[in-house]
Amino acid sequence: MLITELKSKEVLESLLTGKVFIINCHGCKEVSFPEKEAEEFEKELLAAGKVTGILTTDYICNPENLQVRLERRRAMIDEADAVLVLSCGVGVQTVAEYLTPKPVFAGCDTVRLPGFQGVTPQEFDCGQCGECYLNYTGGICPITACSKSLVNGQCGGSKNGKCEVDPNMECGWERIYRRLEATGRLDMLKCPTQVRNFATDAEVTK
């Protein structure tokens, strides 16, 4: 089971400087979603006239479903400066890849609960790190796309764009750099030094 928690209001507000299209994923039973908190936050954004549209749906981690639903709302998405996704890390990554070069932000952190784990059958993976970094990395998960789960940039081991650990695997940080370049967000690489917090068990965070 996964838990997604809404990021703090300060963090969310710092991300959303312009108009925004919002996607809520209320899909699967395996993920607990902060519905009430999200609704309150979205109401505030709506009142401020910052929202071009809201899509509340399920299983956005399924690229085919996602594509159909997003294309129906293309005009609203084009009108927005960024897309805010409230889902687990897999959902955000799926949207970010599909909508590149549009900036896509994660509104939630994904935390692991011991026991049954959510089904993540797609090409994207979320390590449930508890502090979603996708907003710094253009929607590519540094925890699962980098062999060392580095959160501050590329190591010196990438050769021909491949990871030092596995020549068949693309270097995650090379992908992140290209994505940030494509979305015009290279300034994200100048964010403060990130230090991971491994104390994400439910007992510690609650």
Partner: peptide, 12 residues
Amino acid sequence: DSVDAQLAKMER
């Protein structure tokens, strides 16, 4: 061959 990503890391 990832010199852009290397420069970004250098700046950090």
